[in-house]
Amino acid sequence: MIYAALFYAIALFTVAGAFGVAFSENVVYSAFSLMATLLGAAGLYVFLGADFLAAVQLLVYVGGILVLTLFAIMLTHQISDVEVSNRAVGRWPALGLVGFVGIAMATALVRAPWKVSGEVVAKAAGEGTTYGIGDAFLGPFLLPFELASIVLLTALVGAIVLSRKEIRD
């Protein structure tokens, strides 16, 4: 019972955050709503037994991406700006379109014959997933893992090249 209540609370928190991002009038508020969603998602991961992912979510998203976003906001707006900085246009057509997407997906959700094994895997429940994930990354997923590092390196170089001031010689 407490488990269910806790789940609903976190789910509500997550979804509320998401809508905050969508509807907030100030981009800084949007960013903080995004944080709520990300935290909520981390909570859901814990519920799903993905402890390592929850930690990664906190570190990468909340600690990294969100801070980066806030920096970008600071760099592109005057701090003293109090006016609406998060203009939204064409809400009604968008809402209609999103409604269609929602209906389609909800239909799929209801109709699909989900295969649920129902078993809680010992790893997920008991000893934590870090060991298994580490093993998988150095085993069957080694190649994607290495490719990921190349992608990150490229992104790193790319971000530096893009954001520095152009030097003309």
């Binding site: 246009v89 379109l97 999103v98 269609f100 997407v101 389609a104 997906m105 239909t107 799929a108 109709r111």
Partner: peptide
């Protein structure tokens, strides 16, 4: 940008409904 985004979403909706 947003016009392309709309195109994408509309495309997705069409594909989804065609399937459903």
């Amino acid at each position: 940008i947003y016009s392309y985004l709309y195109a994408i979403v509309i495309g997705v909706v069409v594909v989804m409904f065609a399937r459903l």
